[in-house]
Design a protein around this nucleic acid. Structure first.
Length: 288
DNA sequence: TATATCTCCTGCGGGC
DNA sequence: TGCCCGCAGGAGATAT
């Protein structure tokens, strides 16, 4: 499940293998993969052909390729199961191949996506808060690995909200790049239960939580990301190793590495949350 | 306006 | 063996 570290691994791969190349031909094999490109697949393919990729950028879980001479970007979201693969054209099509971009150098850039939650769309570039981003990404907050990420601003935003901390962590307009896995890991490190109201947490505790999110994602990036199955791979089809370092997510009934209590699993926002019952006690009163 | 819930999608595993 | 159902979850749409 691609979150920030996994998307950054893919971005680096695209920077190494795709930047500097020109797109010769584009084939959209599943319309849902371009549903966010409202003019449709024919428009997208036509506007990509002949364009050169000049950079690969990322904010949170969104990544984009900047194109010249049109000065637009292909915005890519991997969703739950999206993969950007650099392949030799002789490699047989993947079962869930959704988009193929053939480069003039003779290699394929393939978008493979089993669950079709991800997709490609073209977007104009705009300047927001001193940074150039696609207009479709303008509402996304800076992520903890962004050099211009300001934790004090995020703490202030969190303390002004009337919601639970895990819900706020997953809100990409507050802080981006955090998904279910790294939210649970950051909350475990900061010893905070995900149901705690954001406005009842002190500034230093929230700061500690953001530091934990940054640290866990940095460590995951160093190990090539987290993989539970073949759904997340880098551009060469290889998996990461951080799943072996997870302290909370997916660790149900295993002893907490800090206190030994069995990690519990709870339903939250229609998904699973993992936490230590002793290190991360539930709040006495939960809204709702 | 802010927050909460629903929906999309596919493959796997468990239960019957 | 085969069918059915629940689960996984990011983010936009819809509801409250």
């Amino acid at each position: 499940m691609p979150e920030l570290p996994e998307v950054e691994v893919v971005r680096r791969g695209l920077e190494a293998h795709v930047v500097g190349h020109t797109i010769a031909d584009v084939e959209v094999l599943h319309p849902r993969a371009v549903r966010r490109h409202l003019p449709g697949s024919i428009d997208l393919a036509g506007r990509l052909e002949g364009q050169s990729v000049v950079s690969a950028e990322r904010r949170g879980k969104y990544l984009w390729l900047v194109l010249e001479p049109s000065s637009v970007a292909i915005v890519v979201h991997l969703g739950m199961s999206g993969q950007m693969l650099v392949q030799d054209p002789t490699v047989p099509d993947e079962k869930h191949l959704r988009i193929r971009a053939r480069l003039e150098s003779g290699i394929d850039l393939r978008f493979v996506d089993q669950r079709t939650f991800g997709g490609w769309a073209l977007a104009d570039l705009v300047t927001v808060d001193g940074t150039v981003v696609p207009d479709s990404v303008a509402h996304i907050a800076r992520d903890p690995l962004d050099p211009r990420f300001d934790p004090d601003v995020v703490v202030k935003t969190l303390r002004s909200k009337q919601t639970e901390i895990k819900r706020a962590l997953l809100d990409q307009t507050v802080v981006s790049g955090v998904g279910n896995i790294y939210a649970d890991e950051a909350l475990w490190r900061a010893e905070i239960h995900g149901n705690r109201p954001t406005d009842k947490l002190s500034g230093p505790r929230l700061r500690r939580l953001l530091d934990a999110a940054r640290d866990v994602m940095t460590e995951a990036l160093d190990q090539g990301g987290t993989s539970f199955d073949a759904l997340y791979v880098n551009v060469n089809g290889q998996s990461g190793y951080f799943d072996r370092s997870l302290d909370a997510y997916g660790q149900e009934d295993l002893p907490c590495r800090r206190c030994g209590s069995p990690i519990r699993r709870e339903k939250f926002m229609n998904r699973s949350s993992y936490s230590c019952p002793r290190c991360q006690p539930r709040p006495r009163l939960v809204r709702g």
